[in-house]
């Protein structure tokens, strides 16, 4: 049976990982390749590296990092951040990334999803969506790391992304991210019911139970987390053992 995936996410700036709390206030957490290797050795199923550098110089550093990750790590990894056009994708895949994650660029230019999936296959194209539960009960998508609201709703956009050729949806709930009280399982379950591509849950992990809940209640195919792993609050071998005891299929 296909295993539920545990995915540590590493936000990278100048080769070092940082983690934002509610998308601001960065704290430093360590060397990106070393950390990824450690997670891989502990049993992480995949890694996500997000480039949060804004400068051109930083982007080049990131491609070098992708090359080092590919050389050192024997599990699949996704890279994202600053991907605006096909040639960015080409550069990152050539450096050894298995998948790319596109976020704001896809909202601004949805055609980019088709371009990526046509050229490289839909399995390469992860569409990341940052959305927030608004006071009126709707889930709305945000641009630029959650800074700019849009008029697109989460479910409509996720469906459109799938129809345009996305291979996976990585949904981060801005309302849950950094709060450590669990994933946005209602919205996740609704996504799982309406889509036929895998959904990665992101934002809200604080305890091991949260992972179980997002697989069972949220029907997620994979769960992504950052700070609980970076700061050792949850250890991947213990998490997997716990999930196995909860009758969830995981790779041990």
């Amino acid at each position: 049976m296909l295993a539920k995936r545990i995915i540590p996410c590493l936000d990278v700036k100048d080769g070092m990982t940082v983690k934002g709390v509610n998308f601001v206030n960065f704290r430093e957490a360590g060397d990106a390749v070393e950390l990824g290797k450690a997670y891989s050795d502990q049993g992480a199923d995949e890694l996500v590296y997000l480039d949060i550098t804004a400068s051109h110089e930083g982007r080049k550093t990131f491609v070098d990092l992708v090359r080092r990750v590919a050389a050192n790590i024997s599990i699949p990894f996704t890279v994202g951040g600053g991907i605006n056009e096909l040639k960015d994708v080409d550069r990152l895949l050539n450096a050894g990334a298995d998948k790319v994650s596109i976020n704001s660029a896809a909202l601004r230019n949805p055609h980019l999803i088709e371009e990526i999936s046509t050229h490289f296959g839909s399995q390469v194209c992860v569409v990341a969506i940052d959305a927030k539960l608004e006071d009126n009960g709707t889930w709305m998508c945000y641009l630029n790391g959650g800074r700019i609201p849009t008029d697109r709703d989460l479910f409509g956009w996720a469906k459109e992304a799938q129809d345009r050729g996305a291979g996976e949806i990585l949904f981060t709930s801005m309302s849950h991210d950094g709060v450590k009280e669990g994933y946005a399982n209602d919205a996740l379950a609704r996504l799982a019911d309406s889509l036929n591509i895998p959904v990665i849950a992101s934002g809200g992990a604080g305890k091991m139970e949260h992972f179980k809940d997002t697989f069972v209640v949220g029907k997620a195919d994979a769960a992504l987390a950052a700070s609980v792993f970076h700061f050792g609050e949850i250890k991947i071998p213990e998490l997997k053992q716990y999930l196995k005891e909860q009758h969830i299929t995981v790779r041990i």
Binding site: M1, L2, A3, R5, D45, S122, Q123, G167, E168, D193, N196, I197, P198, D221, A222, R251
Partner: peptide, 16 residues
């Protein structure tokens, strides 16, 4: 050929 809603294609991820 998917038989249920949960059967996603491509088959992607870790399997035994």
């Amino acid at each position: 050929m998917p038989e249920r809603h949960e059967d996603k294609v491509p088959h992607m991820g870790w399997n035994t």
